[in-house]
Amino acid sequence: MAILELQNICKDYMQGKEPVRVLKNVSLSVEKGEYIAIMGPSGSGKTTLMNIIGCLDVPTSGSYVLDGADLQDLSDDALADIRNRHIGFVFQSFHLLPKMTALDNVALPLLYGGVPLKERKRRAAEALEAVGLSDRAEFYPNQLSGGQCQRVAIARAMVGKPDILLADEPTGALDTRAGSQIMEIFRGLNDSGMTILMITHEPSIAACADKTYHILDGELHTAGVPGRGGSEDEAE
């Protein structure tokens, strides 16, 4: 069963007075448990697509069904609720809250999900353990390395046991070693059944996924389409 189903998604941004089409008739179906990489040159619309899949943004046209539910015309708060329950985000720049400890950062989505305090602490500690950071629970983000910060962010993304993990260049700010650590964690998560959508520039990272899509100038191409392997991206 498809966990998410995009059909003819278009997204326009106003560039001055002219609307500019950033996504052009994007259709994408993702099965439960799939691990997908999306590649494409800078400015091709990867983040825009990710925002729509993550319910942070709404498409100009087209339909989006997440876990069997059509997401058209939902209120901001309803979308917030869907993000909280179905989607985990991992960003290139981590986006941890600097004044909270690693543990509190991880527990935050559970707070919004209405989980009681004790349970929050327990599950956050569990998630931190899963990314190998139990000993850093009481550290603040500025006391952690970039790789550790990203692992905290992953713990935060998975703590609520969402259906889908969305990662926008999760290794973009990390060196190769830290990057491959992150990929190991993603592999483990995917093995335990989590659906993962990951944006990346690096072919070596994309290679970790089961399937790779390419976006070129707002159009989504499946594997096998010219450009596979990402050599153009690197040439850019």
Binding site: L56, A80, D81, R83, H95, P109
Partner: peptide
């Protein structure tokens, strides 16, 4: 923005 992204409602 982060808080809203991970599910904080307006209220």
């Amino acid at each position: 923005g982060l808080k809203k992204a991970i599910g904080a409602k307006k209220r």
